[in-house]
Design a protein around this nucleic acid. Structure first.
Length: 265
DNA sequence: CTCCGGCTCT
DNA sequence: AGAGCCGGAG
């Protein structure tokens, strides 16, 4: 474990990455960056982050902003439900905690869009409090170093090692270092995460519901509100294809319907 | 065409 | 436990 830690630290000294959310650290900036980073690569988050927090600089402005405004700032990041989660998270922080992000794992987990990985990252990066957690970069590092030649490695197997390696006096820098190292491993031809039990081949994107939903968000952001037949004309999708997807988006709270017209909620 | 990513709901 | 959710890069 000592050699492992030395390896990570030495890599970090040479190759540490700088990001806007590492340069100026506030709980709000950490929350926004972590939600963005959940399913989006850092390159794209880097472009969107500053414009987003400039337009919506704190929990209060985010909680009060119309969803359409938040979605406009979110465009290009994908998985638009996260933008809605982020607004609901901000509302919860205002209502439950009078605008101050709570500093404990349980309260963070109770916020919309926050699971184990995000709660652990927020505790480390916003508050420098040590919790063991696993996300994709961390998973890569541990599989690469400890599970060479293994297949179907589960997070349950990895977690005790994360726990043992954790620098409890400075978890923020330790996790920066782990993630920078893991990210570098990801760039190599053989991604260690293919040896994770979570690895799965994904369905094609073309003609998926995911694509239709993305098209719909873009269309409605541009148009304001639209009747169903105009949506059918504009997208070229038939009603059979469109209506179930649109219903799901209404159910998710992304879209609302009023007098036969649909718009961003 | 294949690839990446954590949370939510079932 | 497993499926669904996005957009951009290779």
């Amino acid at each position: 474990m000592k050699a492992f830690r030395r390896k990570i630290i030495s890599f970090y000294r040479r190759r540490k990455r700088t990001f806007p959310w590492r340069e100026e650290i506030t709980p709000y900036r950490i929350v926004v960056s972590e939600i963005m980073l959940q399913q989006t690569g850092v390159e794209r988050v880097e472009e969107k982050f500053e414009p987003f927090v400039t337009k919506l600089p704190d929990f209060e402005s985010l909680a009060g902003a119309p969803l359409r405004e938040i979605m406009e700032a979110w465009q290009g990041l994908g998985y638009n439900r996260r933008a809605l989660s982020l607004k609901r998270l901000a509302q919860a922080v205002i209502e439950r905690y009078s605008g101050e992000l709570p500093r404990d794992r349980e309260s963070l987990l109770a916020l919309p869009g926050v699971g184990e990985a995000t709660a652990g990252a927020i505790m480390a990066f916003a508050f420098n409090v040590p919790l063991a957690f696993i996300e994709t970069n961390i998973r890569r590092v541990f599989i690469h170093h400890f599970f060479t030649g293994c297949q179907k490695v589960s997070d349950r197997q990895i977690m005790p090692l994360v726990e043992a390696a954790l620098d409890r006096s400075n978890p923020r820098d330790w996790y920066y270092a782990l993630m920078d190292y893991g990210s570098a491993l990801g760039g190599t031809a053989n991604n260690p995460n293919r040896k994770s039990s979570r690895y799965a081949k994904q369905a094609p994107f073309h003609d998926s519901d995911r694509k239709v939903r993305g098209d719909m968000i873009r269309l409605l952001l541009g148009a304001g509100s639209m009747a169903i037949d105009d949506i059918i004309d504009a997208t070229g999708h038939g009603a059979d294809r469109l209506v179930p997807v649109l219903c799901a988006m209404v159910r998710d709270g992304l879209v609302t319907e009023e007098a036969g017209r649909y718009r961003i909620a």
